[in-house]
């Protein structure tokens, strides 16, 4: 048969780069189109930054409040996208068979995960840009090396992505929704984001200091507020969380 019809088989995967780019673009659009997600990733961090810089509610120590708050809110932004947002979105994608259907497409699983990571990073770029502008407008004067900041943000993203995917891939979607929001709230309060860890009792400080959000906010503060070179302790903590989280996610993630 030589005639070709509309559906005459001509199967084949698109080039890998094209597939991942298309998937990353779709994932990013899905993230940015979701109103609840934007509330979490953009509105809440921005409001916290503005509110607590303008009004002296919490004693943030010596120096300007915004110099203390901006690094914490940047850490919060990373957590909101890489952990909370990604966990909830992925949990519902799993629930509604999106991951299952994609698994039957030519896009390999690691390609999907790469695309998701790209979408998270793109969203974070938007967040960081917006929060930086707002913080500068509030009189923020950041110190330190931008590369050190980038290293912290990337490791933080890896740590939170691992934990978010672990949650999304093991719990029911509703449980993920509830748990991810709860964790967000708890870590917002107890992770040195807007409330200095020094406000907590000594014993609590030691434990809270090991949380990924504390390591990230503390590391960012060391660089951006105090001009430190590379906060190795915080980077190490984040690296451990990243290895544990991504490892566990790879091991326990269920696609359906």
């Amino acid at each position: 048969m030589t005639a070709t019809g509309t559906f005459t088989p001509r199967p084949g995967a698109a080039p890998l780069g094209r597939m991942i780019r298309a998937q990353a673009a779709l994932e990013t659009r899905m993230l940015l189109r979701n109103g609840e997600q934007l509330l979490l990733t953009v509105v809440i961090p921005t409001l916290l930054l503005v509110l607590f810089s303008a009004v002296d509610i919490i004693d943030t120590g010596a120096g300007r409040a915004v110099d203390f708050l901006a690094p914490g809110v940047l850490a919060l932004a990373v957590m909101s996208t890489a952990f909370t947002g990604q966990a909830i979105a992925t949990g519902f994608e799993r629930r509604y068979g999106v991951l299952k259907r994609l698994a039957a497409s030519p896009l390999p699983r690691w390609g999907l995960m790469t695309a998701k990571t790209c979408a998270v990073l793109v969203t974070e770029v938007f967040q960081v840009a917006l929060l930086t502008v707002v913080a500068l407008a509030l009189g923020w004067s950041p110190q330190g090396n931008p590369l050190a900041v980038a290293a912290l943000l990337v490791l933080g993203t890896a740590a939170f992505s691992g934990l978010g995917l672990l949650m999304a891939g093991t719990l029911r979607a509703e449980a993920t929704l509830a748990a991810a929001n709860l964790v967000f709230l708890l870590l917002l309060v107890g992770g040195g984001v807007i409330v200095p860890l020094t406000k907590f009792p000594d014993a609590a400080q030691t434990v809270l200091g090991l949380l990924p959000i504390s390591a990230l906010s503390d590391g960012l503060r060391a660089v951006l507020q105090h001009g430190a070179a590379l906060p190795w302790g915080d980077l190490g903590t984040l690296a451990v969380w990243a290895v544990l989280g991504l490892g566990a996610a790879a091991r326990f993630f269920r696609w359906e």
């Binding site: 298309a22 779709l26 519902f92 994608e93 999106v98 299952k100 497409s105 030519p106």
Partner: peptide, 24 residues
């Protein structure tokens, strides 16, 4: 699939175009 398989926030045409873009 018997049900589901599409991002709840994706538009019909967008999703179909995306699926097409995964193929040669």
């Amino acid at each position: 699939l018997q049900s589901g398989g599409v991002y709840s926030g994706a538009r019909a045409e967008e999703m179909l175009r995306h699926t097409a873009s995964l193929h040669a």
